[in-house]
Write a protein that binds this DNA or RNA. Structure first.
Length: 264
DNA sequence: AAATTATACAACCGCCGCATT
DNA sequence: CAATGCGGCGGTTGTATAATT
């Protein structure tokens, strides 16, 4: 096994190496990275080969600058998920986690350098003051519909996959983000970045009435089940809001030098 | 025009979870 | 069980290129 001998090449890949790796994967398919270096005739470790393919050679990778809507999605998803680059990239077709991470780090996470005359940049009135609050995400899947909806339990209904489910709370708290994934699951998030005033208000609301009406609208062409209309109101418990300290630097979020308004 | 500094991003490193032995 | 190996992830770095002095 232990064949990583004298000098395994590191650093930037040459065109020749790229061709060798590409040919190897064309022939044997993706995966089995342990065998790739010898199969391809490359003096590289398996991890290096995998990385090169995943981040560069794979033809599914989208090249070129990020479009405005992609940037918008990155920012919103980063607000929701934090540095979960792989998850974020999963919502951006053709973009790799590395690219998203690089873009964020170089274009969006420009730390505001406080002028020396301003010892406390947080007191600068031009920087918005808000807390980031991160409720636990609720995952709605085929299987969880009957669980969420008590009436459905006894009917023992199943929930077919739906392409699009839009979710809103009846008390007009916030429109939640919602996107089906590969498993036809839908993540339901509360609005995660809310300003100082709203935090207390929402905490209070939730304690008073923990069971909140959620209006689920199915925009796809398949009904959730026969009894259900395309739009149905459920009652279920919203998760507690949890302060997330790690996200405290979001008031230093900048888009190409311009402050980004996370509330718009 | 040369030297220096800043930026962008490809690639590396260490760690982790999971599967297999 | 523990040991090992692999794929995957996120933080970080190295370096080519661009921008500035």
């Amino acid at each position: 096994m232990e064949e990583s001998s004298v000098s395994v090449r590191k650093g930037a890949w040459t065109e020749k190496e790229d061709i060798l790796l590409r040919k190897c994967i064309e022939k044997y398919g993706e995966g089995k990275w342990r065998k790739v270096p010898s199969r391809a005739g490359l003096n590289r470790c398996q991890k290096s080969c995998r990385l090169r393919w995943m981040n560069y050679l794979n033809p599914n990778i989208k090249r070129g600058a990020f479009a405005a809507d992609e940037v918008d999605l990155i920012i919103r998803l980063h607000n929701l998920l934090g540095n979960r680059w792989s998850l974020i990239a999963g919502r951006l077709p053709g973009r790799t986690a590395n690219d998203v991470k690089n873009y964020f780090n170089t274009h969006l996470l420009k730390k505001k350098v406080a002028p020396s005359s301003d010892p406390n940049p947080r007191l600068n009135p031009s920087t918005p003051s808000f807390r980031v609050v991160k409720p636990w995400p609720m995952v709605i899947s085929k299987n969880s519909f009957p669980i969420i909806l008590d009436e459905d339990k006894k009917n023992n209904t199943t929930t077919p996959a739906s392409n699009n489910i839009s979710v809103s709370t009846s008390n007009n708290n916030n429109i939640s983000y919602c996107f089906p994934d590969e498993n036809d699951e839908v993540m339901l998030w509360d609005n995660l970045t809310i300003n100082e005033k709203e935090v207390d208000y929402q905490q209070q609301q939730r304690r008073q009435d923990p069971m909140t009406n959620i209006n689920l609208s199915v925009l796809g062409d398949r009904p959730i089940n026969e009894e259900m209309d395309y739009s149905t109101t459920y009652k279920f418990q919203l998760p507690e809001l949890v302060e997330e300290d790690n996200y405290g630097n979001l008031d230093e979020l900048y888009l190409d030098g311009e402050p980004w308004n996370v509330f718009n």
